[in-house]
Computed example of a mutant assay.
Amino acid sequence: MTTLFISDLHLSATTPEITQCFVQFMREEAIHAEALYVLGDLFEFWIGDDDCSDFALSIRAEFKMLTDKGVPCFFTQGNRDFLVGKRFSKQTGVQLLGDETVIDLYGRKAVVLHGDTLCTKDVKYLEYRAKVQQPWLQWIFNRIPMFIKKKIVRKVQSDIRTDKQSKSLDIMDVTQDEVEQVMLKHHVDLMIHGHTHRPNVHHFPVKETDYTRIVLGDWYSQGSVLVYDKDGFELQQRPFAS
């Protein structure tokens, strides 16, 4: 049995090749897993749990089929899907996690998170994150008409694209000090996250102990899956259908 991790799919109705790869993954791989962890940015932007578009309904249905088969599925909100909430959880059977969660992987403790909070040099983004995470603001947003929500989201997406163009890659990557502080806080030597779109496995010493940080890949040009079992782990790719 394996535990699977994915992040940064950025699913949307305009990228059917990614959705097709995701559906195939869910039906052919995740269904046989011991558990599935989605570490944020499953969607290009989740507009809210009241989204009843065909696309949103189809993605909910994939998760519902998986959890109905008895496969536990866990979801950490990312910077694109922070509005995934209790209604989504109830409709799909997916269990929502906090910003940082310690899990047991075959006897080894690991902290899992989206990864955006590790990018402490990106001060402007962290300020934006603090604003949109405020419960009162989300409460208001969830109660405005859908057509207004869509206008707001289009503006936010445009601002994000513009902002990223002016930032260096260094600013948008994690800071090592923050990585180590989070791992020390949770007393773990393994961290798994996404967000940076830089799939890799980093090994480094902390207080004479070997630590490991696994970074998940995005799904822009292929699927990306971390496969973890009792014998170890591997970052793997899944090609899009030709």
Results as ranks from 00 to 15, higher is better:
Thr3Asp: 03
Thr3Val: 15
Leu4Cys: 01
Phe5Val: 04
His10Trp: 04
Ser12Phe: 00
Ser12Pro: 02
Thr14Phe: 06
Thr14Asn: 12
Thr15His: 10
Glu17Asp: 10
Ile18Gly: 03
Thr19Gly: 02
Gln20Gly: 07
Gln20Thr: 13
Gln20Lys: 13
Gln20Leu: 13
Val23Tyr: 01
Gln24Ser: 14
Arg27His: 10
Arg27Ser: 05
Ala30Val: 02
Ala30Lys: 09
Glu34Tyr: 01
Glu34Ser: 14
Ala35Lys: 13
Ala35Ile: 08
Ala35Gln: 09
Leu36Asn: 02
Leu39Gly: 02
Gly40His: 04
Leu42Lys: 04
Phe43Pro: 05
Phe45Tyr: 15
Ile47Lys: 07
Ile47Asp: 00
Cys52Phe: 07
Cys52Pro: 00
Ser53Arg: 12
Ala56Val: 07
Leu57Ile: 09
Ser58Ile: 03
Arg60His: 15
Glu62Ile: 04
Glu62Val: 01
Lys64Tyr: 03
Leu66Phe: 08
Lys69Glu: 06
Lys69Pro: 00
Lys69Trp: 00
Phe74Trp: 15
Thr76His: 00
Gln77Lys: 15
Gln77Asp: 01
Gly78Lys: 11
Asn79Tyr: 10
Arg80Met: 06
Asp81Glu: 09
Gly85Gln: 06
Arg87Pro: 00
Arg87Met: 08
Phe88Val: 05
Ser89Phe: 05
Ser89Leu: 06
Ser89His: 09
Thr92Pro: 12
Thr92Met: 09
Gly93Asp: 02
Val94Asn: 04
Gln95His: 13
Gly98Asn: 10
Asp99Leu: 10
Glu100Gln: 09
Thr101His: 11
Thr101Pro: 08
Asp104Arg: 02
Tyr106Gln: 06
Gly107Thr: 05
Gly107Glu: 05
Arg108Pro: 09
Lys109Asp: 04
Val111Ser: 07
Leu113Phe: 04
His114Lys: 13
Gly115Leu: 13
Gly115Asp: 12
Thr117Arg: 14
Leu118Ala: 01
Val123Pro: 02
Tyr125Val: 01
Tyr125Ser: 05
Leu126Val: 00
Tyr128Phe: 15
Tyr128Pro: 11
Lys131Met: 06
Lys131Asn: 02
Val132Phe: 15
Leu137Glu: 08
Trp139Leu: 08
Ile140Gly: 03
Asn142Ser: 13
Asn142Glu: 08
Pro145Asp: 01
Met146Lys: 14
Met146Ser: 05
Phe147Ala: 12
Ile148His: 14
Lys149Asn: 05
Ile152Leu: 11
Val153Ala: 12
Lys155Trp: 06
Val156Leu: 14
Val156Glu: 05
Val156Trp: 04
Ser158Arg: 15
Ser158Gly: 11
Thr162His: 11
Thr162Asn: 13
Gln165Phe: 07
Gln165Tyr: 03
Leu169Cys: 03
Asp170Thr: 13
Met172Lys: 08
Asp173Gln: 09
Asp173Glu: 13
Thr175Gln: 15
Thr175Tyr: 07
Glu178Asn: 14
Glu180His: 13
Glu180Lys: 15
Gln181Trp: 00
Leu184Tyr: 00
Lys185Ile: 03
Lys185Leu: 12
Val188His: 05
Val188Asn: 01
Ile192Glu: 06
His193Glu: 02
Gly194Ile: 12
Gly194Gln: 11
Gly194Met: 10
His195Tyr: 05
Thr196Gln: 10
Arg198Ser: 07
Arg198His: 11
Pro199Gln: 02
His202Cys: 05
Pro205Cys: 00
Thr209Trp: 06
Tyr211Glu: 04
Arg213Ser: 08
Ile214Phe: 01
Tyr220Ile: 11
Ser221Met: 08
Ser221Leu: 07
Gln222Cys: 10
Lys230Arg: 15
Asp231Leu: 03
Gln236Ser: 10
Arg238Leu: 15
